[in-house]
Design a protein around this nucleic acid. Structure first.
Lengths: 226, 226
DNA sequence: TTGCCGAATGTCAGCGGCTGACATAATCTG
DNA sequence: CAGATTATGTCAGCCGCTGACATTCGGCAA
C-alpha cells in the first residue's frame, strides 16, 4: 500500500502537494516496470520472462526491481491490487440502509463499471486486467500468490463490514462468514470467466458476477433435483 | 495423486496384489521424506529448512527429493492432501436424501472425526496436521500453495455434487457456487482456529466448523444491527 | 552557489530452489 | 542369467532473491 500510494515525506498536512522530483521519478520507474512486465508476460508468458529482462527493459538493475516489488508475482498482480483497493473504497461509501450482502454486491458491480468506464484501453486498464486473469489461472505460482492476496483483501472486508454494522468480528462470526462467501462467489465468477470466454469486456464480467450471486440462495437451500 | 496412491504397473486387475520390492521402497522413501520434512519444519521453521537438509536426513540426493515432490511446498502439504482425499470419499457415500449442503457438512465432520480417531499421534496424524495448519498460515509461499490446492479440491467437489444431483455444472451454477461457499466457510473456520487457539484436538476444530456453518444463514440475510 | 544529508540505485557475491542431461545401480521380466 | 526398465546419483547451470557496500542523485539550508 505504502508503495502504491506513497505520500510526500513530511506531516500529514501536505497531502495535495505536488511531490518532489525524487518521488515522481519513483512513481515513473514503478509504472514503467509494471508496463514492461505486462508486455513481456503477455507476449512470452509469465514463467518464461525473467526479472532481468523486465529490469533491463526499463534500464534498471535487477536489484532495483526487487526494491519496488517483493517478488516477480507482485509486479504481475499490481494492476489488480489497485482495482481491489477501489472496491474497498466503494464498499466504505455504501448507504447504511443496504443489507451487508446488498452492499457487497453493489460495490463490486460499481467498481467494475467505474473502472471499465475510466480508461478503455492501454496498460493498467480493465481489458489488460482481464487478460491478466487468464494468465494468472495457468501460472501456478501466480495463481497461488493471487489467492493469497484475495484472502488478505477478505480480512479488510471483514473489518469494514464489522465497523459498518457496529459489531466485534471476534464475537460475531457473520462478518467473517459473509466476507468469505462473498470472496468465494467472486472467485467462482472469475474462474467461469476464464473458462468460457463468452462475455466481452467488463460488462460481460459484471453479468457473470450477477448470475453467480443469483444462485447463492438456490445453491444453499433444499434439494436440486427436479 | 498418482504419486500418492500408485498402482503396481500392469492391468487394472491386479489391484490388491502386493506391490513388488521396488514399489515398496518408493513408498518407504516417500514416507521417510515426509516425516523428516515435518520434523525439521516444526523444529526450525519452514523457510529455514533447506531441501538439502531434508534429503540428507533420509540419505537421498536433493535431485531424488525433487523426483518425489515437485517443490518444497508439496512435501509440507502431503499430509493434508491425504485428509482431503478422505473427505471426498466421505462425500461420495452420503445418502441421496440429504440436501447438498447437508451432505457437505456431514462429510467434513465425519472426515475430521474419523481421522481423529484413527491415529491419535505420531507423524501424519491429525494433531500434526493441526500443527501444520499454523505453520501454513505464516509461511507465505506455503499458504499460497495451500490455497491453490484447496481450489483444486473445490473443482472435484463440483464434479461430485453435479453427479450426485444429476446435472451439468456448465449449465447449472449451483454446484459451483455451493462448492465455493463451502470452501470459504471451511477456510474461515481454519483461520479462526489458527488465531484463537482455544479448542483442542479435532473435536475443537469440528465445533468451530459447525459454529461457522450455523452463521451461514444469518450472515446472508437482512440487517445485522439490533 | 555551495555543501551536506539522506534516499535511491548500482555492483557484487552468494544462497537456495529447481531442472536437464547423462551415467550408474538397482529391480523386474522372461 | 541377460536384457529391458526404472530409480538414483552426479554435475552443471539458470533463476529468484538477499545482504553488504559503494556511488550517485535529489532535497535543503547556510
Amino acid at each position: 500500500m505504502a508503495a502504491r500510494t506513497p505520500r510526500p515525506a513530511g506531516t500529514p498536512e501536505d497531502l495535495g502537494r505536488t511531490p518532489g522530483l525524487r518521488e515522481r521519478k519513483k512513481q515513473q520507474t514503478r509504472y514503467a516496470l509494471v508496463q514492461a512486465a505486462h508486455v513481456l508476460f503477455l507476449s512470452q508468458g509469465f514463467a518464461r520472462t525473467t526479472v532481468d529482462e523486465i529490469a533491463s527493459a526499463v534500464d534498471v538493475s535487477q536489484r532495483t526491481f526487487f526494491r519496488y516489488f517483493a517478488n516477480k508475482d507482485e509486479v504481475a498482480l499490481a494492476v489488480m491490487a489497485d482495482a481491489e483497493d477501489y472496491f474497498i473504497e466503494c464498499l466504505r461509501h455504501r448507504p447504511a440502509e443496504e443489507t451487508p450482502l446488498q452492499a457487497l454486491r453493489a460495490s463490486i458491480v460499481k467498481a467494475w463499471r467505474d473502472l471499465g468506464n475510466a480508461k478503455a484501453s492501454g496498460p493498467g486498464s480493465i481489458s489488460s486486467a482481464l487478460e491478466l486473469m487468464r494468465m494468472i489461472e495457468d501460472a501456478p505460482t501466480l495463481l497461488a500468490a493471487h489467492l493469497r492476496r484475495v484472502t488478505e483483501q477478505e480480512r479488510i472486508v471483514v473489518r469494514v463490514l464489522a465497523e459498518r454494522e457496529g459489531l466485534d468480528p471476534r464475537e460475531d462470526l457473520r462478518p467473517t462468514v459473509l466476507a468469505a462467501v462473498f470472496g468465494s462467489v467472486l472467485r467462482a465468477a472469475h474462474l467461469s470467466w476464464t473458462a468460457d470466454r463468452e462475455p466481452e469486456g467488463p460488462e460481460g464480467m459484471i453479468a457473470l458476477i450477477e448470475r453467480h450471486f443469483d444462485q447463492l440462495g438456490p445453491a444453499l437451500t433444499g434439494h436440486w433435483r427436479a
